[in-house]
Write a protein that binds this DNA or RNA. Structure first.
Lengths: 194, 194, 194, 194
DNA sequence: CATGAATGAGAGTTCATTCAT
DNA sequence: GATGAATGAACTCTCATTCAT
């Protein structure tokens, strides 16, 4: 494939991404993509056979782009507690973000598409989150900032809460106060036993 | 509406419920319903204009039918801890139930349909769960079975975890051990500080 | 299916028959049929799923309609030789008929569609012809009109020649004289050994 | 046209020939050819504008390649009867050959394409066959091996039977016994009147 | 010459929705 | 009320054909 083709393919994926954000997965048709991209019907089929194939590419890109959440935002003196708070704040931002996100499409897609665990973006994000949080809690426990007997259990608990909040945000009005409350509850659980 | 009509309407709703369980919300067509019910195309339109309308009726019925979860299962001597454990066990059963459930359809429906909080089944179920759990924790705290400084916060945390688990069950393989682990973590959090 | 539906189905089949005569089998699209019938796209699909299904119905009707070739054309005093001559004359008429026939479509269809012998119209027509001619030759032999030691072999030979002529008529210019010549050759073969 | 071009053109024609054998004429698309040849879409158009043009070239080559059927297979002492039997045996082999042949494509092509007699491969093959057989019968009559009052008529009859058998082989199951029967019938007709 | 990306016309198919009976 | 035939819009997908490189 030529450079130009690669460019175009990337353009299609990025444009499609917006369409998926707007409409979810199930509702999007090849025609929608064609129109959003301003290309011809046949042209799209040169690159992707159906919306599922396209969506997989969107997800691939998604994963690549979300590697380092913390990059450059963390000052040297930040404590594990600071970093966890920052992480949760970022999650909050995403939860409350009014702009359409890919979440709905992702859920719709994985409702119907059973992929091996290693290809499941949701699982990967979840596991990744658990890993990071567990590290933070361990670090915080060592410094005495946190008290926690089961860092991994706590990390998983947090990630499930976040997942619950995410689905809540997608399916009903979720006031900022509700998110704050949950974050506070989580943080208190870690500082608590002082 | 005549008695017969009421009967028929109910029959349609119940049959449609199965179709929604099988296919989710988005994928179901009026034709699917017609075929599942064995009635005429025109006949269906006498009762429902589209699948959304039908689904709303399915949800209404759903809510009515799920009033008393605990009915008759609780012996007199059960402690709050026993009851909470029973509740979580029931949740686990539903999470791991391989048979198709309405969950996918419900999520898909509420992804797209913004209804006032009072009509949102997901929110009602959530709030209902929080209420019940909070009462249980309070009761358990009084008897000394539990230790908990923020019963409502804990209840909410539990419900968000359950919601997270529910979405996990729908979108990826969720082993029984993972559910057990979360339930255990929750219960330990309540008994813990002894 | 209601009476009206049966009427319409028949109408479609008959209209389709003309389209197949005009264009053969392979070239005909569902759209062609729709347009020829003056019905809606979806309407046609209520009755037939694709052109092959439709063509099979055309063939069915074809077979029913061609039962009695000789009906009412044969006077009481006709000899087997007269009748055979009449039969061949009818075949000649069909061979030279300039108007489009179903033949091309039939060949195209059976080139690609392998059906059990009992459903193969071409085979049935062939076998039927052999049977009729054999009877005639036997009758003629008994009356002394014909001389033939192998009536069935002769009958088969005649039918293969007719089949050869049929394909010749479809694929190249076939002058009347050529057909006459073959018919004459056949008849002489039967009268010959006098 | 350069040498290289000539080479390439020939390569395309030969490859296309296989495609036509596989799929007949009507079903073959320019895309099929392009893919079979492993050349570019545009590249094919430099040589042929459509499948009909290509098929004509295939036919041309076909004719050139089928000059001498008997070459080197006939011993000096073979009688006309031997040679005719050999000819019919070769025809039988082709008739029963399970591998795809160009026949279907040829018929499909000439169903739709009316060409002057001199360009019609089917007619040329037919006339060629008649000529050869007539010569053989004449020769056999002179030696007394055959008895035949109308060699040309007999030759034509044989060729039409062969044509009938060919179409039978393409459109229905044709058992070897049926072919043998016809060949036997033909040969007996020539030896018969002893 | 040769490539292959791009276009757009057109075929297939499914369904929501209507309406005469 | 109930039926189901009919319509037409909308989507999917494939290819002949062109054209910039």
């Amino acid at each position: 494939m030529s450079d130009k083709s690669v460019q175009k393919q990337k353009y299609i994926i990025e444009t499609a991404r917006n369409v998926f954000m707007e409409k979810g997965f199930k509702e999007v048709t090849m025609k929608d993509i064609v129109e959003a991209c301003g290309i011809s019907r046949g042209g799209l089929y040169l690159y992707f056979q159906n919306t599922a194939e396209l969506f997989q590419e969107v997800l691939k890109l998604e994963h690549e782009d979300t590697d380092d959440v913390f990059d450059g935002k963390i000052s040297k003196e930040a404590t594990p507690g600071d970093i966890l708070a920052l992480f949760l704040k970022e999650q909050k931002r995403e939860l409350l973000n009014k702009k359409p996100s890919l979440n709905m499409a992702i859920y719709e897609y994985f409702f119907r598409t059973k992929v091996p665990a290693k290809d499941n973006l949701l699982k990967k994000q979840f596991d990744g989150g658990v890993y990071v949080i567990e590290r933070l809690i361990e670090a915080g426990t060592e410094t005495g900032e946190f008290y926690c007997e089961d860092p991994r259990g706590a990390a998983r608990n947090i990630m499930y809460v976040l997942e619950g909040l995410k689905i809540a945000a997608q399916t009903r009005k979720l006031p900022e106060s509700a998110v704050d409350r949950e974050i506070l509850y989580i943080m208190q659980g870690l500082f608590a036993e002082e």
